[in-house]
Design a protein around this nucleic acid. Structure first.
Length: 453
RNA sequence: GGCGACGUGGCCGAAUGGCUUAGGCAAGGGCCUGCAAAGCCCUGUAUCCGGGUUCGAUUCCCGGCGUCGCCUCCA
């Protein structure tokens, strides 16, 4: 059974399922106001790997991941560029899902939009008001964090400690708030801004409310797992939880957070630092599988450096796996080796130990290659099947060289003929042609094999 | 100021109180090959520093140095 580190309890523990065989997961999705960056890519890849693995394990997974399509940053950009805000959110969402498709990230089972749940959010805020956990000021409605006894559970800091720190940061709306840590549930709109009606005045929802409403509505109370990037731990997740607690509802049973993407100097890459490397650039310039490979070789909670050397190494390791897939495709269908798959489950169930899983894959590849060389085709086929099964469970599609053009296949046959005739000058010339056409050429006893470089 | 994470070989990156080693990339040697490619076998250099606990620490504890994150809206 799956064990994951739980941010709330700070320990690796079993993920307890409300309903055997089913898991409900909420993943905080993007705010659609700009191109996705590497951190977005990491989070979606990590949870895509989790989701695929769980489905492969036989669980029915309901993965709810929101799109935040109303937010200050969206409004700012719309004003700056003189465009309708919906124009920005629609376009950014398109770009987002196109990028995710290229990364082989499955679409979540549910993709709720914040703007579709404004009515429910207004209702929820009303309930919080009636419970005296929220109050209105001149610029909006705020949650009173003192209504939440264990506020700071995810931040692992007491309210007092949090308030004592923060240095020279500006606290929004501080003058009228009961406590500086109180956060906006509803923001009154200025003229010309997108707005929805509410009992307290026209406005728009604050950032944290949508996830509470949508997760509780789609997954229900005490749903199994809540996920997101480590930067969302506080304040976003803390504030989601605070609202649920203030409502008197049980929220997520388990909290999972993935680590940051850092640059070559080890600093977090984020928009606030202005050193973003765009996810779109990465998947345009490199095999999109390379990022998945890199993340698989890193534990999801560790920071990961994304740089030239790292990505190059992943591209090369993928080439080795592709060569393997191409080589072993000829062995035909076999039952995957059971011991290997048992080991695979063991490492994956241990806090999603994908570095262990990739080590297992490479070991199995080596064993399968050795079995081919020693003539044990049955063993090779069953090990190869295990490799393909594991890669598939991780969303890593190996390329077995099926996209070879007819002309290249022709040249490969000519190359064999030339070698058979010991016309090595011709053979070398043909190989050169194939290589300059972008193919890797392997001449073997069983004939020449070509695949895309 | 408060809370927390981390410092492993040429690079990336796991694991671990001693027992057999992570793994990938790079490097060297060998086998195979007409030559390559792919593959197989073998090899090297490592656990930030100083104390402590221990028969024994890279692993646990303390201190130091260094890097990073969070402390109200960034995946």
């Amino acid at each position: 059974m799956l064990h994951l580190y739980d941010t709330a309890t700070r320990e690796v523990r079993e993920v307890h399922l409300r309903e055997p065989g089913k898991i409900g997961i909420y993943l905080c999705g993007p705010t659609v106001y700009g191109p996705p960056h590497l951190g977005h890519g990491r989070a979606t890849l990590v949870y895509d790997i989790l989701r695929r693995y769980l489905e492969w394990s036989g669980l029915t997974v309901r993965l709810v991941s929101n799109i935040t399509d109303i937010d200050d940053k969206i409004i700012d950009r719309a004003n700056r560029e003189g465009r309708p805000w919906e124009d920005i959110t629609h376009k950014c969402e398109d770009v987002w899902f196109t990028a995710m498709r290229k990364l082989n990230v499955l679409r979540p089972t549910d993709v709720p939009h914040a703007t579709e749940y404004v009515t429910q959010m207004v209702e929820m805020i009303g309930t919080l008001m009636s419970r005296n956990a929220a109050y209105a000021t001149s610029d909006g409605v705020y949650l009173d964090v003192n209504a939440v006894p264990d506020y700071g559970l995810l931040a692992h800091q007491s309210l007092e400690d949090m308030l004592s720190g923060g240095g020279d940061r500006e606290v929004l709306g501080a003058a009228e708030k009961r406590t500086p840590a109180d956060f906006a549930l509803w923001k009154f709109s200025k003229p010309g801004e997108p707005s929805w009606p509410s009992p307290w005045g026209e406005g728009r929802p604050g950032w944290h409310s949508e996830c509470v409403v949508m997760s509780l509505e789609l997954l229900g109370e005490s749903f199994d797992l809540h996920c997101g990037g480590a930067d969302l731990r506080f304040p976003h997740h803390e504030n989601e939880r605070a609202q649920a607690v203030a409502l008197g509802k049980t929220f997520a049973q388990h909290w999972m957070h993935n680590g940051f993407v850092v640059d070559a100097e080890g600093e977090k890459m984020s928009k606030s630092l202005g050193n973003v490397t765009n996810l779109l650039d990465l998947i345009e310039h490199y095999d999109p599988r390379a990022y998945r490979m890199l993340l698989l070789q890193t534990h999801y909670r560790s920071p990961v450096k994304v740089g030239q050397d790292n990505i190059d190494a992943s591209v090369k390791s993928l080439a080795g796996l592709d060569a393997f897939a191409s080589r072993l495709a000829a062995l035909g269908v076999a039952t995957a080796d059971g011991d290997v798959l048992t080991s695979f489950r063991r490492v994956m169930d241990d806090d999603l130990d994908t570095p262990g899983a990739t080590a297992l894959i490479f070991d199995t590849v080596r064993r399968a290659n050795a079995a081919v060389d020693s003539g044990d085709r049955a063993l090779a086929a069953s090990l190869a099947a295990a490799v393909m099964t594991m890669c598939s469970a991780l969303g890593l599609d190996l390329q077995a060289g099926s996209d070879v053009e007819d002309s290249a296949a022709d040249l490969a046959r000519q190359l064999d003929a030339a070698r058979a005739a010991k016309d090595f000058a011709a053979a070398d010339r043909i190989r050169g042609e194939l290589q300059s056409a972008g193919y890797v050429v392997e001449t073997t006893k069983d004939g020449t094999r070509v695949r895309r470089a």
